[in-house]
Write a protein that binds this DNA or RNA. Structure first.
Lengths: 233, 233, 233, 233
DNA sequence: AATGAATGAGCTTTCATTCAT
DNA sequence: TATGAATGAAAGCTCATTCAT
């Protein structure tokens, strides 16, 4: 039984330690205002040492994103595994998201920067990573939606479109909440959304009138609609 | 009949010209990567001239935000004024938003940076401006929702909460769309959302079962729920 | 009889107006911190107009120096003319100096800058102007000292050396007073100096002992002593 | 026996090296004309390195002042310690000053800039430092004067006032000498001054007449006279 | 003569990165 | 592996000066 961790294990442990410290600095100051020196100081190590573990600042930033998203994804996966019926699963996914977001509300600006970074970076690696993660998450959502339909709890809806929509909505509410100064309960906002989405806003009278049209829309979704990009003039 | 524009008019025209150029540079490179020199070059003026019209880079960035948001808000207001019944109004708001977002999709990263900037800036001016704008927009949405209810088209719903939710959803879908590489029609995504929100996803069977509970939730909204912020540990 | 001043007179009047304004700005902010814009603002004229009257900033600074020194010199000359016996003249010179310095204490840093400027300027014009002024002043002092000696009020002293010494002492006391935060009466400091210089500090006993040696020193002065400059090593 | 200098020692050595180089640049070009690049070039180091040792240009300038004044003060203190009777001490102080000033004549403009800087700087740190130094120096002079009086070599004179006067005179003569292009011997000027101050200029006849009045003035000094500052009108 | 918009060289300062130890 | 002194490119901002009106 080894008394000390082997070298590679130590290395990985230190990488994690660095990322866990860096996330706080990046989140509170932003990518540009966060200095490598700040991070080194927070770790009580020398600036040069950071470069032994990450090739450069961007690499470290990417590491932070990965670390954070892995955490989120893992907790989402766990939520799925811990429940069996789709209703519980749906609830668990929302709970997990709310908990994660509430816990990491202070990292919210980071999320924005990740996205901005990804949309602008010359290399696609950042963007690809975000999309992959989103794909996995939307598969989760899609799965649950499909099960709901199978149980006749959900109407006939393109579950893929729905899952993508849900992801957007989720991020949008979170953003809104952060910009609003976290002045209300994120959980309640999510629940309110759930009610709206689940039950709809139309009165029964109206609902019946538009039933056929809505039915079709929901069934087809929006992901496979043709789209012509319009250029700015 | 004035022969030449008066000085102040010229000044304002030049401010607008600068902002219109700056927006493109900021959007494509990002706040930090965009250099004042780049902007000056794009305008074929000297760097120093920029400082005759904006006190510093941040001021110019704020100018860009204002310019852009004023455009959006104005078109939303116009959409409201051009229609009289709430259903048309709701459609018009969505149309306007979709058009605006589609037209300015390339400026999307800017939106993220505005938000990140606002959340981190020492001065509140940025955040306040965003909130004010959101408030005005949500009032528009709230108004429409109230009219819908008055006409018995909408169920009893806290229209304020609903309007806030809508804003978040709207931004969220846009973001999602941008990150997804604009691979589907934003308009269709918005319509899909409209169907989901209007009609709900539940089957009639389930719907009836949870009717009372949902009713209450929608009526109360989420804005005035008590909220205890949880600290990260 | 002309109703308006002729053009050249107007021009001169404006030059004076500019200088009188500039002196306050230069004095309070220093040469470098004082901006041409500040001066233009204080005059409520356009920046460009300054350049119609002075070729550049340095020229204006020189103008300020000239204006100020002319004022001082003129009042010294007047003091001399208003009195006839050397004792009154000596008193008047001191009075005038004290009054001038007290009145313009806030311009003291300017004096330092003039000197520093002169010692460093590539062109000698500044230094020459200062030396000329000092020469005229020391002639005044020298004259008075000579008259004192003629009246047997002063011992045999090289009046030229004495006048140069006096100038240095005068500036030195003023500087000291300014740096000391003007915490005592400049006039009293000058009077104290006068007593020291007039009557000496030695007791009669010691005085007699060194009489011959001192006598010689005073008679010869220091201006024509040989001097080998030592270079910094 | 240490083989290598410890880090802090090296650091201090480098700070001194920088200051010793900076002093020459500042002196010859002036604070504003002296560029950080010039100083770095003179040291054959990178500009950035300067900022590892001094927070900014002003800090470096302050360092130069401190370095220089410490040198002067230390040599004055040494002069005091090396002699025992007040007459020798007085001579030694003058000798030291003359030597110091002659050796550093080329730094004279710096002294003016230090003073100008101090009188205008928003922070008092510069001014306080100058005053403290002057206070220590005037204590030296005051001490000597008191001893002279105890030995009945000096008349009854307020030694504090006298010491302050002496400092002013000393600086004034130096300034005068520099502005006069160092065209005479500074040492002789100081000696001449010593004769004047020691023995006075009045003839015995006049001296006796004003004896009582002068006596009083010298005894009282000028430091504690009431003073009403006159404002410029 | 007066203006003030435009200029652009030139400054201080920062900080990611390197590399000899 | 860890260090941290040294680097130097790069950027925002200033402001004396110009010149078309």
């Amino acid at each position: 039984m080894a008394r000390t961790k082997s070298a590679p294990e130590n290395r990985e442990a230190k990488r994690v330690l660095i990322v866990e410290t860096a996330i706080g600095i990046f989140a509170s100051k932003g990518y540009h205002a966060a200095k490598m020196q700040d991070i080194a100081d927070a770790l009580s190590i020398a600036k040069g040492t950071l470069y032994e573990y990450y090739t450069d600042k961007e690499d470290l930033f990417l590491g932070v994103y990965d670390y954070w998203m892995d955490l989120y994804e893992a907790s989402m996966m766990r939520a799925m595994e811990d429940h069996f019926d789709p209703v519980s699963k749906a609830d668990a996914l929302i709970d997990t998201t709310v908990e994660f977001y509430e816990k990491h509300a202070k990292y919210a600006p980071l999320l924005l920067e990740f996205w901005a970074h990804a949309l602008r970076s010359t290399s696609d690696s950042f963007l690809i990573r975000i999309r992959d993660m989103k794909k996995r998450l939307s598969q989760l959502g899609s799965e649950v939606a499909t099960q709901m339909q199978a149980l006749k709890l959900f109407r006939n809806v393109d579950s893929e479109s729905f899952a993508v929509l849900e992801l957007g909505i989720s991020d949008g509410i979170f953003l809104q909440w952060v910009i609003d100064g976290q002045s209300y309960s994120l959980r309640e906002a999510y629940k309110f959304r759930q009610s709206v989405i689940g039950s709809g806003l139309m009165t029964d009278t109206l609902r019946k009138l538009v039933a056929a049209k809505v039915e079709k829309k929901l069934r087809l979704g929006f992901l496979h609609t043709s789209f012509v990009r319009k250029e700015d003039t």
